[in-house]
Nucleic acid binder design. Structure first.
Length: 377
RNA sequence: GCGGCUAUGGUGAAGUUGGUUAACACACUGGAUUGUGGCUCCAGCACUCUAGGGUUCGAGUCCCUAUAGUCGCC
């Protein structure tokens, strides 16, 4: 069937097989591969939605769990949806809340019906099911909704990974049937299965039978090593149709992004750039900069001479060093802007390289040039 | 000039009746950070208690002197 969010492949790199595309959404078209900034509480911390849009952010994430607790889905519905609420002009995507159930709620109980857990703010008993997650996401109103899944830890036994994946599949079906606004909001299914080739294949095949607007790779970035993650991504996408967008959840390190593109991933999101920025770590074309270090105290050069962001165009490392040491909010803001723009720019370069059929070269040269450590930042 | 009080790391300071490894905080120096915990987390950081001397098995803790601050009186 047709969905409100569709995907169009614009070029396949003759050197690498990586692809560029356009994601068509009710809130505009965006080019892929892309990096999506995370704005959990309907804000990418310290950056205005207008600035994000001007920076070329494309899709921005919000989070079902957090918005459900505050301000509540009804407030967002009354506001006319999250985009109107926060004044973001571009497309948005909501994570289903599944991840938060497992990352920050305590004493959870998973049953076939859904998950019972404690509100991390006040201890209230809460219940989230696939239907309820989609219902809330319908109220939030983002262009793309995510299926309610279980993100299992790594490592996990094969038995648990299988049991959980089969349940996630049933939840995907239930969530899909619960969509109250199928003409305005699309759902992406999430491939799980842990570190098991057959389970990843099976999960992907079953999701494809259900026919989603796009597919995500879940259960990664949960503490596994790089090789394991890349393997899980490869297995997950091997059974997916080429003409649907593929979203790798929770990835934002430079080497991971570049590898994901090689594996035909079209979309990635991550809190990494904004989180490390708040703690004074910056990603630059020259590598990583921990701006608090004494060596930057009198460094009156820009953070990244090759960067076109607001921060790099106007301020020096010495100033950022000072703002960071004095714990000034403006510094946090300037550093957040830089790291987000850095990744958006990186993906612009990625798309350019793919279109020029030199992505493998680009990837190799970029990794060598940026000198990040094995973590990729 | 006389009298009182105080002298512990970069800073503010804990240090019981003298008893092994000098509390804590901030700062500083490292490190962490991947479907969001903004102002976070972890680690390191005074071989030494203003300087000399003395008492004692043992002194940051007691005594003397010096020095420096500080308050009060001339």
């Amino acid at each position: 069937m047709t969905y409100p969010v569709t995907f169009e492949i614009t070029h396949v790199c003759r050197q690498s097989g990586a692809r560029t595309g356009i994601l068509h959404t009710p809130h505009g078209d965006v080019e892929t591969p892309m990096f999506m900034p995370v704005g959990t509480q309907a804000t990418v911390k310290f950056i205005s939605p207008e600035e994000l849009y001007e920076m070329g952010a494309g899709v921005v994430l919000a989070n079902t769990y957090h918005l459900w607790l505050r301000p509540g889905e009804e407030v967002l519905a009354k506001a006319g949806g999250v985009q109107k609420f926060m004044n973001y002009k571009g497309p948005m995507l909501t994570d289903s809340g599944g991840f938060q159930v497992f990352s920050l709620a305590d004493s959870r109980r998973i049953t076939e019906e859904g998950v019972t857990f404690k509100n991390n703010l006040n201890g209230d008993r809460l219940f989230l099911s696939p239907e309820k997650s989609i219902h809330i996401q319908n109220k939030i109103g983002a262009d793309i909704m995510m299926s309610f899944d279980e993100c299992i830890p790594y490592p996990a036994t094969r038995e648990y990974a299988e049991k959980s994946m089969l349940r996630t599949l049933r939840w995907a079906e239930r969530g899909k049937a619960a969509n109250e606004r199928p003409d305005e909001q699309a759902i992406f299914g999430i491939v799980q299965g842990g570190d098991n080739e057959d389970l990843r294949h099976y999960c992907a095949e079953k999701l494809v039978e259900m026919d989603f607007a796009g597919y995500a790779v879940g259960g990664t970035s949960v503490g596994e090593d790089k090789e394991t993650m890349y393997r899980m991504v490869r297995w997950s996408q091997e059974k997916l149709p080429l003409d649907k967008p593929r979203y790798l959840m929770g990835v934002g390190a430079v080497n991971d992004l570049l590898e994901a593109v090689s594996l035909n991933i079209d979309m990635c999101d991550c809190v990494l750039p904004t989180r490390i920025a708040r703690h004074g770590t910056l990603m630059t074309s020259q590598g990583r900069i921990a701006i608090k270090k004494a060596m930057y105290k009198e460094d009156f050069t820009p953070l990244d001479p090759e960067c076109d962001c607001y921060t790099c165009r106007n301020y020096t490392k010495a100033y950022l060093n000072h703002l960071c040491r004095t714990n000034e909010g403006f510094g946090t803001r300037l550093m957040s802007i830089h790291n987000i723009r850095f990744l958006l720019h990186l993906m612009e370069e990625v798309r350019k390289a793919i279109k020029e059929d030199r992505y493998d070269d680009f990837k190799r040269e970029t990794l060598a040039r940026m000198k990040f450590d094995e973590r990729g930042f």
